[in-house]
């Protein structure tokens, strides 16, 4: 790690995870990567996309699409126990006004799903599985 924008370091960590998974599964290539990026994780989705377009070059994810699920922020109030939608800089309870809240959703920064392009299945596997379309 160690790049000017932290989105570059994070994207590099993402590609490490994705390419390791592809190698583990014996995939030919990565088709699509889906990640969750909450507004409170401190990462800019647009910058992450830009970093992905550059860093994927030369890897097995060179043709992969990156889809980013930006999450809404939700908080639970420790005072009145209500669950509410919130904004990244308005995290107090909108109902009772208490600032003793905790984040239920909105600080995610994680890899959710990877679509891998697999080589043709071996004959043994074909014997007990439906044949893929040519």
């Amino acid at each position: 790690m160690g790049n000017y924008l932290h989105e570059l370091s994070i994207c590099s960590a993402l590609l490490d995870q994705v390419t390791a998974l592809a190698a583990l599964r014996g995939a030919d290539a990565v088709n699509r990567v889906t990640i969750e990026v909450g507004p409170l994780c401190g990462v800019d989705p647009a910058l992450l996309c830009a970093a992905f377009a550059v860093l994927r070059t030369g890897s097995c994810a060179a043709q992969a699409d990156l889809s980013i699920d930006t999450m809404d922020v939700r908080v639970r109030c420790n005072t009145c126990d209500a669950t509410s939608a919130a904004l990244p800089n308005r995290l107090a309870c909108p109902l009772c006004g208490s600032f003793r809240t905790r984040i239920l959703q909105g600080d995610e920064l994680r890899l959710r799903r990877v679509e891998l392009s697999m080589p043709p299945a071996p004959m043994a596997a074909l014997a007990c599985a439906p044949s893929p379309m040519p």
Partner: peptide, 21 residues
């Protein structure tokens, strides 16, 4: 959870991107 769909395999994960850090 791998889900085979022809020659495309979708792997569902919930993995922190900063796990190594």
């Amino acid at each position: 959870t791998p889900q085979r769909a022809g020659t495309i395999t979708a792997v569902n994960l919930l993995q922190d991107l900063l796990a190594r850090n």
